[in-house]
C-alpha cells in the first residue's frame, strides 16, 4: 500500500496535470455546511438572544424593555410557583431516573442469556420505551389512574377497595408520572445489554473456580465493568429527566396544587401563555446552568467510580 502511495505522489510531482488534489478545507466545510449554518441560525444566535432577553420584559407584541436583573430577582425571591416547579422537577429526576436505570439493569440481567425466544422478550420489553413518550400513552395513562380507572377496578378484583383519586392527590399524583418514567426503561436496558455481552465469560469462569457466588460475581465483576455504561446512561437520562414536559401537561396539567408543575411546563406557560418571554428566557438560562453543573459534577466525580478497562491494564 505504501509503495503505491509513494508512486502516485511521485507521479503527481512529475505531472501536475493530474486532477488537482482536493482542498480538504473547502471539501470539509462544504460537507458540514448544513450543520454549520443551522448551528449559527438555530443554536448560537438563539442562545445569545435568549441571554439578552432574560434581562428584559418582553411579550412579543411590543419591543423588549430592558429591566436588568428583575426577572432573576422575581424568580428567586417573589415567585412561589417557581420554587414549586423546581421542587417538582428535582423530585421527579431523583426518583424516576434511578428507578428507570435500576429497572433497566435488572431486566438486562434477566435478558442476558442464550435461550430461545430471548429476541421476543427483548422486543416486547422495548415497546414501552418506544411509545411511552407519546401523547397517546399519556392520554391512556390518565385512564389507568382515574378514580374509576384500571388500577382501582383491578384492585377491587383482589378485594382491595380503593377510592383514591390518584390524579387528585398532592402526594400520589407525581408518582403516576414517575411510574410512567420508570416504565420507559427500554433504551437504557438495550445499552446495558450490549455492555453485559462484552464482559468476557472467562472472568466469570475464573471467579467460579475461585468460589465466588452470584452476589460476589455481580458486585466485583459485572458492576465495575458496567460503570462506563452506567455513567453514560446516567448523564443522558438526567438531562432528559430535567426536561420532562409532555406528561405533566397532559396527564396532570401541573396539578393538583401545582405538585406536578414541572420546570419546563412552567417555563412554557410563562413564555407562551402569560406572555412573559423574558421571564421564560431567564428560567431557561437557569435550567441550562443547573444541567451544566450536574453534568460537570458527574464528569468530575466519574474518575472515582467509573472504571475504564484501559486504565486497569
Amino acid at each position: 500500500m505504501k509503495k503505491i502511495f509513494q508512486k502516485t505522489k511521485n507521479n503527481h510531482k512529475i505531472k501536475p496535470s493530474i486532477p488537482l488534489q482536493d482542498n480538504e478545507n473547502v471539501v470539509g466545510y462544504t460537507f458540514i455546511a448544513p450543520w454549520l449554518i443551522g448551528f449559527f441560525i438555530f443554536t448560537v444566535y438563539p442562545i445569545l438572544y435568549s441571554f439578552y432577553l432574560s434581562f428584559t420584559d418582553y411579550n412579543i407584541l411590543s419591543s423588549p424593555k430592558f429591566i436588568g436583573l428583575e426577572n432573576y430577582k422575581e424568580m428567586f425571591v417573589s415567585d412561589p410557583l417557581y420554587w414549586k416547579s423546581v421542587k417538582a422537577t428535582f423530585y421527579y429526576v431523583f426518583t424516576a431516573v434511578p428507578l428507570r436505570l435500576i429497572f433497566a439493569l435488572i431486566v438486562a440481567l434477566l435478558l442476558c442469556r442464550e435461550t430461545k425466544g430471548i429476541g421476543i422478550y427483548r422486543s416486547a420489553l422495548y415497546i414501552p420505551s418506544l411509545i411511552g413518550g407519546s401523547v397517546a400513552v399519556a392520554v391512556m395513562w390518565r385512564r389507568i389512574f382515574e378514580a374509576e380507572g384500571i388500577l382501582n377496578s383491578t384492585l377491587a378484583l383482589f378485594g382491595i377497595e380503593s377510592n383514591i383519586a390518584w390524579l387528585g392527590h398532592p402526594t400520589y399524583t407525581i408518582w403516576t408520572i414517575i411510574i410512567l418514567g420508570a416504565w420507559q426503561f427500554g433504551s437504557p436496558m438495550l445499552i446495558f445489554l450490549s455492555g453485559l455481552k462484552q464482559i468476557p465469560n472467562t472472568y466469570y469462569e475464573s471467579a467460579v473456580i475461585d468460589g465466588a457466588g452470584w452476589f460476589k460475581r455481580f458486585f466485583h465483576i459485572t458492576l465495575p465493568l458496567l460503570t462506563p455504561i452506567i455513567f453514560f446512561n446516567l448523564v443522558m437520562q438526567l438531562i432528559s429527566g430535567f426536561m420532562i414536559f409532555t406528561q405533566g401537561l397532559i396527564i396532570t396539567g401541573g396539578g393538583p396544587l401545582n405538585t406536578t408543575l414541572f420546570y419546563a411546563l412552567y417555563l412554557y406557560r410563562n413564555a407562551f401563555q402569560f406572555g412573559k418571554m423574558g421571564y421564560g428566557c431567564a428560567m431557561a438560562w437557569v435550567m441550562l446552568v443547573v444541567i451544566g453543573l450536574f453534568t460537570l459534577v458527574l464528569f468530575k466525580t466519574s474518575k472515582y467510580w467509573v472504571h475504564y478497562e484501559a486504565e486497569e491494564g
Partner: peptide, 18 residues
C-alpha cells in the same frame, strides 16, 4: 449541542419564526 436543553433556544426561535 446534544446536551443543550431545547428550552434555551425555544423562545428565540419562536420569535424568529414569528
Amino acid at each position: 449541542t446534544m446536551m443543550l436543553p431545547v428550552q434555551v433556544v425555544m423562545i428565540p426561535q419562536f420569535i424568529m419564526f414569528h
